[in-house]
């Protein structure tokens, strides 16, 4: 290999290394890009208040059973709904209460994440008030009751007769749990 060729090879190598760096950056750039796409298309906004459905007529012709579920993930909190399940009419404004108790001797911060079953019901389940909209800090042995206010959009398919709303509390590390 003569020196001109070696120099040419080195130049190609630098160009390719720049491509490698750019693509590494691109991998990280996918994170804000993904968030932007979710925001624009309105999918996956789990912890934001939903707008009330425009058509607030109550559909009294049918009832939907809503079941409530509560879990905590590696978080020593006692977390339960005061109501196991209720029957609601689509379009009706409903409030239920969840109770959370921190059983530890120190304050802790957690964030609840909702999920829905069946999945198809998620977009019709509008939460107007929820403790999951922000992180919650509980003092040692503190017990607190949180309301959840929701409406089921009357546009939801009539095939759905039962919706399970499940919350999981995750610990937010490094906050208030020194």
């Amino acid at each position: 290999m003569d020196s001109a060729q070696a120099a040419g090879n080195r130049e190609t190598r630098w160009k390719l290394l720049v491509v490698v760096l750019i693509m590494g950056g691109f991998g990280y750039a996918l994170v804000p890009f993904y968030k932007a796409i979710c925001e624009i298309t309105g999918i996956n906004e789990l912890v934001k208040a939903d707008a009330k459905p425009a058509n607030t007529q109550i559909d009294t012709s049918r009832k939907v059973t809503v079941e409530f579920d509560a879990n905590s993930n590696h978080l020593p909190w006692r977390f339960r709904p005061l109501t196991g399940s209720i029957e609601v009419h689509p379009g009706e404004l409903v409030q239920v209460i969840y109770e959370v108790t921190n059983v530890r001797d120190r304050p802790m911060t957690g964030q609840a994440i909702p999920s829905y079953a069946p999945k198809a019901a998620a977009q019709y389940f509008k939460k107007l008030e929820c403790f999951c909209f922000k992180q919650q800090t509980l003092a040692a042995h503190e017990s607190r009751q949180f309301p959840v206010v929701f409406v089921i959009d009357p546009d939801m398919s009539k095939d759905v007769t039962t919706i399970t709303l499940s919350y999981t509390f995750f610990e937010i590390a490094g906050k208030g749990n020194s």
């Binding site: 390719l16 693509m23 590494g24 691109f26």
Partner: peptide, 14 residues
């Protein structure tokens, strides 16, 4: 490979 291996490296680094 040059285009996508860095993306994998990013994902598993995350």
């Amino acid at each position: 490979l040059i285009a996508v291996m860095p993306v994998l490296a990013g994902a598993i680094t995350m």
